[in-house]
Design a protein around this nucleic acid. Structure first.
Length: 202
DNA sequence: CGAATGATCGGCT
DNA sequence: GCCGATCATTCGA
């Protein structure tokens, strides 16, 4: 396996990193179960200017603290009380940038993922959506703050050598951030063209 | 200490 | 395709 190095995450252009994460493999090793999926949809968040970002205006709280860390950490946040949303922290220390993973394509150990989701057959909603993919991969908020570049981390991202060509990346406005008025048109959502596994059709 | 709020999912039609 | 449940975190008093 080829785990991505810290230098991949510490670049300052979070939009560029978001695009490059498409086609990479998100792998977890939790409770002895190795599961993975190919990343097919991401969104970029960038404090202090991005109102949709939790760290907007460099708001610093116990929850968002990890976003100010150096790139390569996992920021996992609980939404609506039940959904675990998985983010990749990027850029240098004190720059609160992050990439939300919105959807993956199931790859390894699909049986275990089905069991975690209490489903009996493979269908799109197994991993399409930030809350569901976390559940399928066994990601929970207690893993927030881990260093994904450490050799023994339970979560990491691999490059398996099949980059997505820029012409196959669809950029569009982000979802679910209607409250962030002046930012809703920023095309910071990225999907793999033609993938059947993104969270919404398009 | 209490109230408001949200980067959503799943079931139903 | 649409609607509503649900709770940790945040912020103001």
């Amino acid at each position: 396996m080829k785990k991505l190095p810290p230098s991949f995450y510490t670049r300052s252009d979070v939009v560029q990193v978001s695009k490059e994460l498409l086609g990479k493999y998100l792998v977890t090793n939790i409770e002895g179960q190795l599961t993975s999926g190919k990343i097919v949809e991401t969104e970029a968040y960038s404090a202090p200017d991005d109102k949709a970002c939790h760290a907007y205006n460099n708001r610093r709280t116990k929850r968002t603290e990890i976003m100010f860390a150096e790139g390569g950490k996992a920021y996992i946040y609980l939404c609506y009380g039940i959904h675990h949303l998985f983010n990749v922290v990027t850029a240098k220390k004190d720059m609160a940038h992050a990439v939300l993973i919105r959807a993956v394509e199931p790859v390894d150990n699909i049986g275990e993922m089905l069991q975690r989701r209490k489903m009996d057959k493979l269908q799109r909603r197994l991993t399409a959506g930030p809350g569901t993919l976390s559940q399928a991969l066994g990601i929970t908020t207690q893993l927030t703050g881990i260093d994904m570049t450490a050799t023994d981390s339970p979560i990491w991202i691999e490059d398996r050598g099949k980059p997505i060509s820029p012409k196959n990346i669809i950029a569009s406005p982000r979802v679910g951030i209607g409250f962030a008025e002046e930012c809703i048109d920023w095309p910071w959502r990225f999907r793999v063209r033609g993938s059947a596994w993104t969270s919404l059709a398009g």
